[in-house]
Design a protein around this nucleic acid. Structure first.
Length: 492
RNA sequence: GGGCCGUUAACUCAGCAGGAAGAGUACUGGAUUUUUAAUCCAGGAGUCGCGGGUUCGAAUCCCGCACGGCCUACCA
């Protein structure tokens, strides 16, 4: 296991330490200060006891400089033989990567560096496997994702993204809790999967002798809670989709879903705006952030653009009443490879013409419109056929009360005025089922338990889903979703 | 699924008109009591991703495979 030259050398040192009667892995260590506290409160002459990982050693014979790092804060240590006496030889048994505890007194060197002159030293944990090179760190992306702990040690940016993510999630909880929402956990293992268009991961539950699915969405269970009289509910947790991976998709990802009774999608818009500027202010103290090369302003109100106006604005084509032949022509002129798309080829299958049409429009939207929307924008009023859980618009039954917030070309969520008419919902499910029979593997499945729940009665309800990973990408300026996931999915 | 690129020391990388495996960091030994990418001297460290082929000779050329990255496709 530990076979490299350097590992063997370190193991020899470890044995030597044990021979000397020193425990290389003691149980605990009391600090008077963390490294951060020392840096923040720094004054010359402080007596401190602190600990951290040794990351640099500069020996000068009878004196040695070192740096320790704790969390993300560093400090310089100064070891002198005539202060430490026989303990100075302890340095010979230390390696970069070891955890040490020290007691000493602060001072400033002649070059101006806050430093601790060490009066006592204790080994807290011996490191066997060496850390990567100090200038370049760990560059290899495969190693960074597979050995994420090392990535976090040597690449401060990697750790920063994960820390900001934690703050975002806890701030979202605080924001919603303060508004009186209840956080509720619903099943991850589900006998049926619903609430989104996606292929699921499948598993098997022995006791019940049947297949289960990892959820693709939390939607239908949360809405059953609304039917049950819980008026403001949310859930933050993993959903799973058995699909491709790229810079915006990981097979398991974190969603916030929330539902609020007596509200509609316009209320959800306000909530999104409020949440984002709350996050921005708490994290950075400003609504203006930079993502990649884009300067973004999250200040409410955000721009609102209808789905078809957005298509017109970014492609130049008005597709609202376009027939299928015109759409195909448009798709080709936009260089969208429609022959590759099973839905477009669906004309060969037994699918509704209008459904194929709307799927194709949505492909044009996803490929050529969404990526171009830079500033925070609500895209509203989606076609009904691709929104089977949303309420129709009053003035146009072909469209629904739905929006997707877009930032920096990234779709970060989805919201509707939730459909609560059981008969209409049943009709929409049946349409989905016939699309499924026609070959659309992602069409939604009729969920009788859900239908029965809204048949008992669901109040008017606004619902919202937000992709937590993508929000974290925006706020941490990460180009890939992998950078905001502690352990991204890799082949084993 | 497709395309392009990558895989050489613990890390970052060179070497690829085929001819004895290299550098920096890290490591080992020595010198050095204010350095901070410390410095100076000496040294050790490799299944060149795996398998096959061509060749007198392959890290280098050819084929296959594995893993990864980027792009693309699929995908709310």
């Amino acid at each position: 296991m530990f076979t490299s030259e350097q590992e063997k050398i370190r193991i020899e040192k470890l044995l030597k330490i044990k021979e000397k009667g020193i425990n290389p892995y003691p149980k605990r260590f009391d600090r008077t200060h963390t490294v951060r506290e020392i840096q923040e409160e720094f004054a010359e002459g402080m007596h401190v006891t602190t600990a951290g990982r040794l990351i640099a050693l500069r020996g000068h014979g009878k004196s040695t400089f070192a740096n320790i790092i704790d969390d993300s804060d560093k400090i310089q240590l100064y070891f002198k033989k005539d202060i430490l006496n026989e303990k100075y030889s302890m340095l010979e048994l230390l390696d970069l990567g070891d955890f040490i505890g020290i007691q000493g007194t602060t001072f400033i060197t002649k070059t101006g560096e806050p430093t601790i002159v060490v009066e006592d030293i204790i080994l807290l944990s011996k490191s066997i496997a060496p850390l990567p090179e100090k200038w370049h760190g760990l560059q290899d992306k495969e190693l960074r994702y597979r050995q994420r702990h090392i990535d976090f040690i040597v690449n401060p940016e990697a750790k920063r993204a994960i820390k900001i993510r934690s703050k975002i999630v806890s701030q979202i909880r605080r924001f919603l809790d303060d508004k009186g929402f209840l956080e509720i956990e619903t099943p991850i293992l589900q006998p049926l999967y619903g609430g989104a268009f996606a292929e699921p991961f499948k598993t098997y539950y022995r006791t019940l002798n049947r297949d289960f699915f990892l959820r693709i969405s939390d939607e239908l269970y949360l809405k059953r809670l609304i039917c049950g009289g819980l008026n403001k509910v949310y859930e933050i947790s993993k959903d799973f989709r058995n699909e491709g991976q790229d810079r915006l998709h990981n097979p398991e990802f974190t969603q916030l879903e929330l539902y609020e009774a007596y509200k509609d999608y316009t209320d959800m818009k306000t909530l999104v705006e409020e949440l984002f500027s709350n996050l921005a202010k708490n994290l950075f103290g400003t609504n203006k952030i930079t993502y990649q090369d884009l300067k973004l302003d999250l200040t409410p109100p955000w721009k609102t653009l209808t789905y078809f106006d957005a298509i017109k604005e970014y492609t130049g084509y008005d597709l609202y009443n376009a027939d299928y032949e015109y759409l195909k022509k448009t798709a080709r002129s936009l260089e969208i490879d429609i022959d590759e798309s099973p839905f477009v080829m669906g004309s060969k299958k037994n699918l509704e013409q209008s459904y194929i049409r709307d799927k194709l429009i949505d492909k044009i939207f996803g490929d050529r419109v969404m990526p171009k929307i830079e500033q925070p924008t609500f895209i509203i009023d989606y076609p009904k056929s691709i929104s089977p859980l949303a309420k129709e618009k009053n003035d146009n039954p072909d469209l629904v009360e739905r929006f997707e917030p877009a930032i920096a070309g990234i779709e970060i969520g989805n919201a509707f005025s939730e459909l609560n008419d059981p008969l209409e919902q049943e009709k929409r499910f049946k349409e989905q089922m016939s699309m499924r029979e026609g070959g659309d593997k992602e069409a939604q499945i009729l969920d009788e338990d859900f239908l029965k729940a809204i048949a008992v009665g669901m109040p008017p309800t606004g619902g919202l889903g937000l992709g937590i990973d993508r929000i974290c990408m925006i706020f941490t300026n990460s180009k890939s979703i992998k950078d905001v996931i502690s352990f991204p999915q890799m082949r084993w």
